[in-house]
Amino acid sequence: MSEALDQVVERAVNDAEFRSLLFKDLRKALEGYPVSDEERKLLENLDEENFDEFAGGLGSRTTKGIWPGTG
């Protein structure tokens, strides 16, 4: 996983507005993040239900928080 994708995931875990944007308008959410086409496709296939599982599977600092209503 690239540093850019790690930053996107970390931000989505910690910023509810960004997380919402990620699922509503991926293109806009990813502006300024140099993610690869493969990483973009990965994000396109995630939704709010499976995002937490994906982020938790990373085993990084991005998984320390729990979203309200998901725990």
Rank of each mutant, 00 (worst) to 15 (best):
E3N: 13
E3Q: 11
E3T: 04
A4V: 02
A4R: 05
L5K: 03
L5E: 03
D6W: 12
V8F: 04
V8D: 02
E10I: 02
R11G: 09
R11H: 05
A12F: 14
V13K: 14
V13Y: 06
N14F: 09
N14Q: 15
S20V: 00
S20R: 11
L21I: 00
L22M: 08
L22A: 02
K24D: 15
R27F: 09
K28E: 15
K28W: 12
K28T: 10
L30V: 01
L30G: 00
L30E: 08
G32V: 01
V35M: 00
D37Q: 15
D37K: 12
D37L: 12
E38I: 08
E38D: 15
E39G: 09
R40K: 07
K41N: 08
L42F: 07
L43Q: 11
L43Y: 09
N45M: 10
N45C: 06
L46S: 02
L46N: 02
L46P: 00
D47H: 08
E48F: 08
E48P: 03
E49D: 14
E49N: 13
N50I: 01
F51Q: 02
D52S: 05
F54I: 00
A55Q: 03
G56L: 07
G56A: 13
L58D: 00
L58R: 15
G59T: 00
S60E: 13
R61Y: 12
R61I: 05
T62Y: 05
T63N: 08
G65F: 09
G65P: 09
G65K: 14
G65A: 08
I66P: 02
P68I: 10
G69F: 07
G69L: 06
T70P: 01
T70E: 13
